[in-house]
Structure formats: structure tokens, C-alpha cells
């Protein structure tokens, strides 16, 4: 039995995890819901992740995106939702699974990484070390969506 089915069974057995295949008959596309971590500008917001599984999984990492124009974050391309995270690229290891991947992205929300900006506006603020401005710009983006 393929590894993806095994992962599906484990994930399905726990009901506190918001990670599921898009339709029951297709394990190649998944969606996940992550909640903004407390004490970050994302607190109180939920974000949807779109996950597509390449044929070579788990030897290739899953491809993960936010909804377009939904995630203001220094490591996320705001227009496309593309995420820059090491484990989704060269640092991927086949011992990671879907759940770990989603949790890493959740962690990325509270630990933005100034070294690989995909959002230039936020990247500049972050490099200047202006955390207050960074946070309020994120809040402004999120507010604007409502």
C-alpha cells in the first residue's frame, strides 16, 4: 500500500487536525487550515493551504501554496501565495510527512525569515529591524481583505 494512503489513515484517525484530501477520491490534492499563532499579527485569522503531491512523493516534497493575495508574510509571495521554505525545497527529507510540512508552515508564521524574502515590501521593513512597522503592515493587509 502506498505511503500516502498510510498517512491519510493516520491523519484521518485524529480529529483535531485540519488537513484533508480535497475530494475523497483524490489523494494527490489536499487542503489544510492553519490558525494564526497567538502574539502574532495573524492571531484570530485562519489560512487555507493548498497542497499538491508530486508523483515522486516522498522522494520529492509536496507543493504547498497559500490562497493568492491572502498571506502577507516576508517568505510568501503575496500575489501568488507561493511559499519560500527550506524543507519545501533543497532541505526536504522523505522522513517528513504532510502533517510535519503543514506544522512547519504554521511555525513560519511566528518565525519569519529575513534571508529569503518573497515579499519585498515586508522584507525591507524586516531588514531594517522595524518590527512594529512590519506587524502593522501585516495587520493592514489582513484588515483590507475583510
Amino acid at each position: 500500500m502506498s505511503r500516502l494512503i498510510k498517512e491519510y489513515k493516520t491523519i484521518n484517525a485524529q480529529d483535531d487536525i485540519l488537513l484533508f484530501p480535497e475530494t475523497a477520491d483524490n489523494l494527490n490534492n489536499w487542503t489544510a487550515m492553519i490558525t494564526g499563532p497567538p502574539n502574532t499579527p495573524y492571531e484570530g485569522h485562519d489560512f487555507k493551504l493548498y497542497i499538491s503531491i508530486p508523483d515522486a512523493y516522498p522522494n520529492s516534497p509536496p507543493m504547498v501554496k497559500f490562497h493568492r493575495e491572502a498571506m502577507p508574510h516576508v517568505n510568501v509571495n503575496y500575489e501568488t501565495g507561493e511559499i519560500c521554505l527550506d524543507i519545501l525545497k533543497g532541505e526536504w527529507s522523505p522522513v517528513y510527512n504532510l502533517l510535519y510540512t503543514v506544522q512547519s508552515i504554521e511555525r513560519l508564521l511566528s518565525e519569519p525569515n529575513a534571508d529569503s524574502p518573497l515579499n519585498l515590501e515586508l522584507g525591507i521593513l524586516m531588514r531594517e529591524g522595524d518590527k512594529t512597522a512590519y506587524d502593522s503592515l501585516v495587520r493592514y493587509y489582513l484588515q483590507r481583505q475583510k
Binding site: 500500500m1 502506498s2 494512503i5 491519510y8 475523497a24 477520491d25 483524490n26 489523494l27
Partner: peptide
């Protein structure tokens, strides 16, 4: 069968 029983069933 996928409609009725889901992909897991048909895969197995």
C-alpha cells in the same frame, strides 16, 4: 465504486 465506497476501497 469510488463514488460509492471511496478511493481507498478501489485502490485496495
Amino acid at each position: 465504486l469510488t463514488l460509492l465506497k471511496g478511493q481507498l476501497f478501489t485502490n485496495v
